[in-house]
Design a protein around this nucleic acid. Sequence first.
DNA 1: CGTTCCGCTGAAAGCGATTTCAACCGAAAT
DNA 2: ATTTCGGTTGAAATCGCTTTCAGCGGAACG
Lengths: 347, 347
Amino acid sequence: MRNVTIVHVAEKARVSVKTVSRVVNNEPTVTPELRERVQAAIDQLGYAPNIAARRLGGSRSFLIVAFNDRKLTLENWRSDRGNNWIDRMQYGAMLRCDVHGYHLLCELIDLESDQLARRVQHVLSSLRPDGVILTPPNCEDPTVLEALKRAQVPFVRMGSAAAGPGARVRMDDQSAARQLTEHLVEQGHRRIGFVTGSKRFLASRAREDGYRQALSAAGLPIDETLLVPGDFTFEGGVAAAEALLSRPGRPTAILAGNDETALAVMHVARRLEIVIPGALSLATFDDTPSVRLSLPPLTTVRQPVAEMAAQAVDLLVAAAAKDGKLSRADHLLPFELALRASTAPPP
Amino acid sequence: MRNVTIVHVAEKARVSVKTVSRVVNNEPTVTPELRERVQAAIDQLGYAPNIAARRLGGSRSFLIVAFNDRKLTLENWRSDRGNNWIDRMQYGAMLRCDVHGYHLLCELIDLESDQLARRVQHVLSSLRPDGVILTPPNCEDPTVLEALKRAQVPFVRMGSAAAGPGARVRMDDQSAARQLTEHLVEQGHRRIGFVTGSKRFLASRAREDGYRQALSAAGLPIDETLLVPGDFTFEGGVAAAEALLSRPGRPTAILAGNDETALAVMHVARRLEIVIPGALSLATFDDTPSVRLSLPPLTTVRQPVAEMAAQAVDLLVAAAAKDGKLSRADHLLPFELALRASTAPPP
DNA sequence: CGTTCCGCTGAAAGCGATTTCAACCGAAAT
DNA sequence: ATTTCGGTTGAAATCGCTTTCAGCGGAACG
C-alpha cells in the first residue's frame, strides 16, 4: 500500500506507464477499453500522481503561489484589525485549485526588505509555480512586478486598478463609489463628506473619482473641504472624522474610504453624540465582518474577493494548460451594494 | 540566466554536484575553502535548489500542508464573521517556514464529505509533505486523524485538548478560564454567568472546568442555572443571553464561551438597556478583532495562535530533519489576559 | 615501512513522472 | 496486393536533485 507509483498502476492494468499517464492527463488518444482498465487500477490502488515527479518530468508544476505581505512583527499582525481580505482570497483560490487538481502555496514577502527582488526570484525558481496571485499592496509593488516579469511567470493582480504587466481581476471601484454616492443623493443628502483612502492604492483614487462623478451627475457642487484625506487606518480615520464632524456646517452623510475608516467615523460620531443614521448617514467599502456586526450595520459595497481569486486561479490554470502565457486582460467582476441601516434620509 | 541548476553551480565552482549539494544542505564535511567557493557561485548565479527535484531524489519535500475546513458555500464563508484564527495561524506558520526554507501549502477539506478519507490520502500521496498542521475543527475529526496516521505523516493538532495521535500545540484553556473568572471574582462579582461553548470542541469543556475551579477556589457556590449552553454562534449566544439577562436575579457578570457569543451578549444587553460594564461585566475568549473594536472593548484571553503555528512548524521541520518521526507531546503555550473596559466592579 | 582508518570528494544510480520518438495496426488509397 | 496514413501504444531518455558507495590522500598505528 505504501508508495503507489505509476508503474504499479501500469502493471496492474497491463499497459505501459505512458498509457497510464495519458489517462491521468485526460489525453484523447486512448481507447475506451484501456482507459477503463487503467482507471479501475487507479481507483483500486488509490493512486495519486506525485506532484514533484510531474513537475520534474513535465512542463507544469500544478502549483500556484499567493504572495502575502509580511507585517513587521507578530504584534503588528495582531493589531491588523479584522480585515479578512486575504482569508477570502485564499478560500476562493483553494476552491478552484481543488477543482483543477492544483495546489495553493502561500509565501510571505516583505515589501520593505532590500532583498525583496531576490526573495521573489528565489521562491519562483525553487518552486516554479504555474502562476502567481498578487493582492494589495504587493500587487502594485514595482520590484515584485519586475521580478515576476523577468521570471516569465504568469500572474494575476487582484484588486488593483494600476495598469502594468500581468492580468488584472478586480471590482469596479469607481462605479461602486458612484453608486454608493447616488444612493445617498437619492435619500436626499446634499452635503456628503468623503474620507479618502491611502494614496498607495489606486483604488482609493478610483473611489474618489466615482464620488465626484455622482455628485456632478446629480448637479451638486463639489465642496473640496468635504474631502478629507484618510490613510485606511483607524487612527487616520479618527482624525479625519473629527475634522469633518466638529466643523460648522458638517455633512449629513459620510462616505468612508474603507471599513477601517468607517469604524473610526462611527467611533467619533458616538463620542460627539451624533446618532447614526438619525443625524449622520455612513457608507463604506469592503464589507468586512466588523461593519456587518456594528450597530447599526453599515451600508457597504461587497467586494467579491473570493470570486476574484477563483477567477484568478482559472486564468492561471488555463494559461498553464495552454502555452504558459497569460494575456494582460483586465477583468471586472460585479459587486453588490449592501444597503443597510446606517444610511437614511437626512434630518 | 534561465534555469540555473546545481550543475551550473558545480561547474562554476569547479567541484562536483555532490559538493554543492553538501553546501546547500549544510553538511559539516566540507572544507571551508570549498564551501566558500561554492557559496560564491551560488550567490553569483542566484541559484535556488528546485524543490521538486529535491523531493524526488531525497527523503524530504520541504512542504508543510495546512488543512483548511471547507465551508459549504461562498455564502457561508462570507457570513463567518471576523474570526481570523486561520489568518493568524497561517501567518505564524509562514514566518517559520520561511526561516527553515520550507513552504506552506493550504488544502481545503470538507469534513462532511463521504470522500474525506480519500481526499486526505490523495493530497498526502501526491504532495508527500513533511508535515501537516490541523486546526479546529478538523483537528478533532476521527476520519482525518485516521488517514493521517495511516499515511505516517507527522502532524500537529493546534488548539485541541483531545488526546490522540499526533503532537498537540495549544493554550491552556482551563487555566485561562480560571484566571478570567478570578479576575471577575476579585472585582467583587458573586453571580457570574457562563455561556458555554459548542460541545464539539473540548476547549469549551476545559473553559467550563476552569470557571468552576475558580469559583470553588474562591469559596463561592456554583449555581447551575447560571450555566447556559451556547453553541459558538451569534444566534445561540443571543438565546443564551436572553435567558440569563431577563431572569430574576440576573448575574452581574458573564463569561462568554467565545467571542461570537460575547458579541451576542452585548447585543442583547444593549437591547435590554443593560449598560456594560456599569450594570454587567463581560469577558470572553479568543480576542478576535471585533471584540477589541467593540464598545466597550472586551476583556479577553489572547490565544497565541500565530505562536502556536510557529511552534507547530518548528516541530514538524525538526522531525523531518531527524528521522521523520514526531512525538505525541502536548505543548502548552502561554496566553495573555487582556483586561479591558468591559469588566468592572458590580453595581 | 606497511596497514588501518578517517576525513573529504566525486561518480553513478535512482526517484516518478513527462516527453520524444519509434513501432505497430488496420483501413483507405493506389 | 501493396503502399500509405492516421490513430494507438510503448521504449527510452530526461528533468535536477539526493543517496549510495567508491576513491584517495595523509595521519596514526602496529
